[in-house]
């Protein structure tokens, strides 16, 4: 036990020191700062997003793509389906800046109009996947027990089937009458497992948090908790994955077209155009290049967007 009665010689550098008060003004204990007025995590995320070049670039590109999808006639007056062999592989000329492909169709017009099919497949497949995977994953994660065991096995079954392969087999069934909806349906039917797994994980990790318990203690039912607390908190990783997958589904659609199981030739599609231009790679690379570039840029925009959103929603950057 220290005995305070013995006086101590203070050593150099250890004399009693008290900082002048004006240097570090004392603030109230745990004072509430009034600097900002209410910003949710989403607002915060958005604020840090708009400072990211990756987000700005991909955002602008996606915006452009959406405009092209909605109003293709703003960008070209040519008809993408008007093809005559007279124009086969013709050079660029006024009104047809990129020239013509082997079938004699305007390459530029086809690139512009091809956006519709790709983006539609990407967007609706993503929607389908989020709905199927989201519900199955949320139910499995939230209820646990045998429901979880059963749904997890079903996820395993669908996950074990190679994605493109399963799509090929199914599309083979409707080979001669494939529509956009078939492709969307098939991709969604075999693609939902990833979202389901992510949703399940996110739900499991939030369902035990204190704020959910507090809500239970207030008297909220489990279902209310799921909808009001658990799902909103689990949604961030789902959004990120969905954005990236949108790009991946566009690639998948192109791959199916390339394998001859894609959209019918009446629909303008980048995948089919790339496939048919393949043989021209030596002589007319532009017929190949432009649809391929359009596809790659579109896909890239979505995965860059997903990447930027992931950074902004990073849980490590969340707490302050």
């Amino acid at each position: 036990m220290p005995d305070t009665s013995i006086p101590r010689a203070t050593r150099a550098g250890q004399q009693r020191y008290v900082a002048p008060l004006d240097e570090t003004p004392l603030q109230g204990v745990d004072a509430v700062s009034n600097e900002s007025d209410g910003s949710s995590l989403w607002k915060d995320a958005f604020r840090s997003l708009i400072r990211q070049p990756l987000f700005i670039i991909s955002g602008l590109l996606i915006l452009l793509i959406l405009v092209v999808v909605a109003f293709p006639w703003l960008f070209t007056s040519a008809d993408p389906t008007y093809c005559t062999l007279d124009n086969s592989l013709a050079e660029p000329r006024a009104g047809h800046p990129l020239g013509f492909n082997q079938q004699g169709c305007d390459i530029y017009a086809r690139v512009i109009y091809g956006a519709q099919a790709s983006v539609m497949v990407g967007a609706f497949t993503t929607l389908g996947v989020v709905i199927i995977g989201g519900i199955i994953g949320a139910v499995a994660g939230f209820y646990g027990g045998w429901i979880d065991a059963l749904l997890s096995r079903i996820m395993d079954i669908f996950f074990a089937l190679p994605f493109v392969l399963a799509a090929i087999v199914v599309l083979q069934l409707v080979r001669d009458s494939i529509t956009v909806w078939h492709i969307i349906g098939v991709l969604a039917a075999f693609g939902w497992t990833q979202i389901a797994r992510i949703t399940r994980g996110a739900v499991i990790s939030t369902k035990n948090s204190d704020f959910v318990t507090a809500s239970t203690a207030v008297g909220a039912s489990p279902l209310k908790n799921l909808v009001r607390h658990v799902l909103p908190n689990a949604i961030a990783p789902v959004i990120v994955t969905a954005t990236v997958s949108l790009g991946i589904y566009i690639v998948a659609e192109a791959t199916l077209s390339y394998l001859g199981l894609g959209l019918p030739s009446t629909i303008v599609s980048w995948g089919a155009d790339i496939a048919s231009a393949q043989t021209l790679i030596r002589t007319n690379p532009e017929a190949l290049f432009f649809p391929a570039a359009a596809l790659a840029v579109t896909v890239l925009s979505f995965i860059m967007m997903g990447d930027a959103v992931r950074d902004a929603l990073d849980p490590k950057a969340r707490t302050r």
Partner: peptide, 19 residues
């Protein structure tokens, strides 16, 4: 900032800085 320093017991028995 180090607002106050010195022998432990001194500080405890006779704190000077408001913090």
């Amino acid at each position: 900032r180090i607002v106050e320093s010195g022998p432990a017991l001194d500080i405890l028995q006779d704190p000077q800085h408001p913090y």
